[in-house]
């Protein structure tokens, strides 16, 4: 298969470098609290045994239905959540149990871009202030250097320099996302977790932001973890894709291989659920993924997808499949190929 040779080259090239971030069997659980004394009554297993490498310069796309734990993975990598189990490395430095104080110098190297930048921008601060703040907090430059750096950041994200005198509410959604990106870039990070960065934007603006992210990656050598439920955007921007279901990665591979020939039944159905791009491609009898994802506080035994899987067999109800070690990996007892 020709596609397979392509995957191997790309993936091998990526793997020749040391990962910038590494998760080993990581579990991030959120306690469910009940009653007046906030007694812990079970856990939402948002991330439940994830092993994942992110390589420098790549864009790893993370897809899955809402509640599958994709945002939690992003937050876990940035150590914005405490892990329940497992280990995390950043640039070969184990950060699993780092305190906030020890994390602080690393914070300049890892940043987060949100879906709604407005929520993360102080409405009373002018853009110039917003962009200068991280530089000061991390003592990255003196006041003259800061002013120049703010101009440079605005240039980078394609906003006029005069923007620094204005307030966040004066900008449109797409422009605010540019401000969010500029703020993330201010500390010169290596890794940026992009959590649904274009989901709230108009279609015509989405493409602008995706192109901007791609240009910045080339220019600054950034690594992205790109989290989104819009598969088109993920396919466009990513090099590799990880598909999540109920806290676990069920498939991981080069994007063309994964989109062209998915191995996991869940991936296949997820792709088929995506709307067509032309009316001619409508399928009369579309196979639709039935039902909804089960409760992550009480995932099904065996393969977590077996309750919705059209191919499930007896073994799937009993035994939990593991992600096989191949370059296009799937966690399925009966993969499609």
């Amino acid at each position: 298969m020709t596609t397979n040779t392509v995957i191997h080259e790309d993936a091998l090239a990526a793997r020749s470098a040391l990962p910038i971030a590494r998760l080993d069997n990581v579990r991030t659980y959120y306690p469910i609290r009940k009653g007046v004394f906030s007694r812990t009554d079970g856990y939402v297993r948002a991330v439940d045994g994830v092993t994942l490498n992110i390589y420098p310069g790549e864009t790893l796309g993370l897809v899955g239905e809402s509640g599958c734990g994709k945002s939690s993975i992003g937050r876990t990598i940035l150590r914005l959540e405490d892990v329940h189990e497992g280990r995390i490395w950043f640039n070969e430095e184990e950060i699993t149990h780092y305190s906030d104080r020890r994390m602080k110098p690393l914070r300049t190297q890892m940043q987060l871009i949100f879906q709604d930048p407005y929520a993360s921008l102080n409405p009373r601060q002018r853009i110039g202030e917003l962009l200068a703040e991280p530089l000061r907090a991390h003592k990255l430059s003196d006041s003259r250097g800061t002013a120049m750096e703010v101009d440079h950041l605005l240039d980078l994200v394609g906003l006029p320099r005069a923007s620094k005198e204005r307030f966040p509410h004066e900008f449109s959604g797409g422009q605010r996302q540019r401000i969010g990106i500029a703020r993330a870039l201010s500390v010169q990070p290596k890794l940026i977790v992009c959590d649904e960065p274009v989901s709230a934007l108009d279609v015509s603006i989405q493409a602008q932001i995706l192109n901007l992210l791609q240009d910045l990656q080339k220019e600054l050598g950034l690594t992205y973890l790109f989290i989104a439920h819009g598969l088109g955007a993920v396919k466009y921007i990513s090099t590799r894709i990880a598909v999540m279901y109920l806290g676990q990665i069920v498939e991981l591979g080069d994007k063309n291989s994964l989109f062209d020939s998915p191995r996991h039944p869940y991936t296949k159905l997820l792709l088929e659920a995506n709307p067509v791009s032309h009316p001619r491609l409508r399928q009369r009898e579309k196979v639709v993924l039935e039902g909804e994802a089960p409760n992550p506080a009480d995932p099904p035994k065996g393969c977590r997808f077996h309750t919705r899987c059209p191919y499930a067999q007896a073994k799937c109800q009993e035994e939990e499949p593991r992600l096989d070690g191949s370059l296009h990996a799937a966690a399925c007892h009966y993969p499609l190929w």
């Binding site: 790309d10 864009t59 279609v203 015509s204 989405q206 493409a207 995706l210 192109n211 791609q214 990656q217 080339k218 819009g230 598969l231 088109g232 955007a233 396919k235 466009y236 090099t239 994007k255 063309n256 989109f259 062209d260 792709l271 995506n274 067509v276 791009s277 032309h278 491609l281």
Partner: peptide, 16 residues
């Protein structure tokens, strides 16, 4: 501007 699944894209060599 619509990124679609049906069009095949290379690795970072095309722009929307």
């Amino acid at each position: 501007a619509m990124p679609s699944l049906q069009t095949r894209t290379g690795v970072n060599d095309e722009r929307l």
